Simulated assay, not measured.
Amino acid sequence: MTSALAGQLAAAPISWGVCEAENWGCQLPPERVLQDMKDLGISATEFGPTGFLPVEPKPRAEMLRRYGLTAIGGFFPSVLHQDGNDPLPAIERELAAFEAAGATVLVLSADSGAASYDEKQEMTAQQWKTFGRNLDEAVRRAADRGITAVLHPHVGTMVESAAAVDQLLNSTAANICLDTGHLLIGGTNPLDLVRRFAARVGHAHLKDVKADLAGRVGRGELGFTDGVKAGMFVPLGQGDCGIAELVAGLQAVDYAGWYVMEQDVILTAAPEGQGPLRSIRESRDFLLGL
């Protein structure tokens, strides 16, 4: 890889259909996914959902090293908004595992507690207070370990809509995971967010989506899972997120974080031949050509 982005480029198991949501489809084994990453020349990856890689930090790190991959951290759903529920012990355990594995980015989502991402959620004023208090404390505890904790606006979580994203940025000190696809589906223009809040982008998940399907999901006309099955996510540069402009906007402010390629897919069976690898290679080539 010779592009200026090569040193910031990473992958995530969701591009191979590996997901924490129930009934998501065929879950490929880590050996297949990690070998594909290695074959692509990718040198860093997120962990994927709990249980995809070994749970214990040392075996987890050793498995990634066997494939020449650096652990950068990953996605961790957490119920942050409910009074009487303390999310911090579980976050502390995850932070300890991240620290032991050398990972540096904890990507929190404002989990609703539901089993899927197909329901729309929103918080009351009191829940926002609880959420903000827990989130800011999680960010502080992560920083004490040298780990960056960011909040990931995500379809089907408590922070999905444009109004919720604005409230997150205006009422907490947390930085954001710029997930271009989930932001667009939720009604936030990701390019506008970069223009207004580039300094608050602590991590980037690069997704591209078809705007027509994203709009239907955003309006509740189509469930998120059905949108994925219908091909809502496409290789980078082939959708409507303006990926080239987004990357240029971040590079212009010397963004030094990771660009994680993510193209959510649902597999009905273990693929023969290249499977998801073909689309991910197209995304990689697009980024390296910028």
Rank of each mutant, 00 (worst) to 15 (best):
residue 169 L to F: 13
residue 169 L to E: 13
residue 170 N to P: 01
residue 171 S to H: 05
residue 171 S to V: 05
residue 171 S to Q: 10
residue 171 S to K: 03
residue 175 N to E: 14
residue 176 I to L: 14
residue 176 I to D: 06
residue 176 I to V: 15
residue 176 I to N: 03
residue 177 C to S: 12
residue 177 C to N: 11
residue 178 L to S: 04
residue 178 L to I: 06
residue 179 D to T: 05
residue 179 D to M: 11
residue 181 G to N: 01
residue 181 G to F: 01
residue 181 G to P: 00
residue 182 H to I: 10
residue 183 L to C: 07
residue 184 L to W: 03
residue 184 L to M: 15
residue 185 I to N: 01
residue 185 I to D: 05
residue 186 G to P: 00
residue 186 G to C: 06
residue 187 G to D: 00
residue 187 G to C: 03
residue 187 G to P: 00
residue 188 T to E: 01
residue 188 T to N: 00
residue 190 P to C: 02
residue 190 P to S: 01
residue 191 L to K: 07
residue 191 L to P: 00
residue 191 L to S: 03
residue 191 L to V: 05
residue 192 D to C: 04
residue 192 D to E: 03
residue 193 L to F: 00
residue 193 L to P: 01
residue 194 V to H: 01
residue 195 R to D: 15
residue 195 R to H: 15
residue 196 R to V: 12
residue 196 R to H: 15
residue 196 R to I: 13
residue 196 R to C: 15
residue 197 F to W: 14
residue 197 F to R: 13
residue 198 A to G: 12
residue 199 A to I: 09
residue 200 R to L: 12
residue 200 R to C: 14
residue 201 V to T: 10
residue 202 G to D: 06
residue 202 G to T: 03
residue 202 G to W: 04
residue 202 G to E: 11
residue 203 H to D: 06
residue 205 H to E: 05
residue 206 L to H: 09
residue 206 L to G: 11
residue 206 L to K: 12
residue 207 K to I: 04
residue 208 D to H: 03
residue 209 V to P: 00
residue 211 A to H: 09
residue 211 A to I: 15
residue 212 D to G: 02
residue 212 D to I: 10
residue 212 D to Y: 01
residue 214 A to V: 04
residue 215 G to F: 04
residue 215 G to Q: 08
residue 216 R to H: 06
residue 216 R to S: 09
residue 216 R to D: 06
residue 218 G to C: 08
residue 218 G to M: 07
residue 219 R to W: 04
residue 220 G to N: 03
residue 221 E to W: 10
residue 224 F to I: 11
residue 226 D to P: 12
residue 226 D to Y: 11
residue 226 D to I: 10
residue 227 G to Y: 12
residue 227 G to E: 12
residue 228 V to Y: 08
residue 228 V to E: 13
residue 229 K to P: 07
residue 229 K to V: 13
residue 229 K to Y: 09
residue 230 A to E: 14
residue 230 A to H: 09
residue 232 M to S: 09
residue 235 P to G: 03
residue 235 P to F: 06
residue 236 L to K: 04
residue 236 L to A: 05
residue 237 G to V: 08
residue 237 G to H: 04
residue 238 Q to W: 00
residue 239 G to S: 05
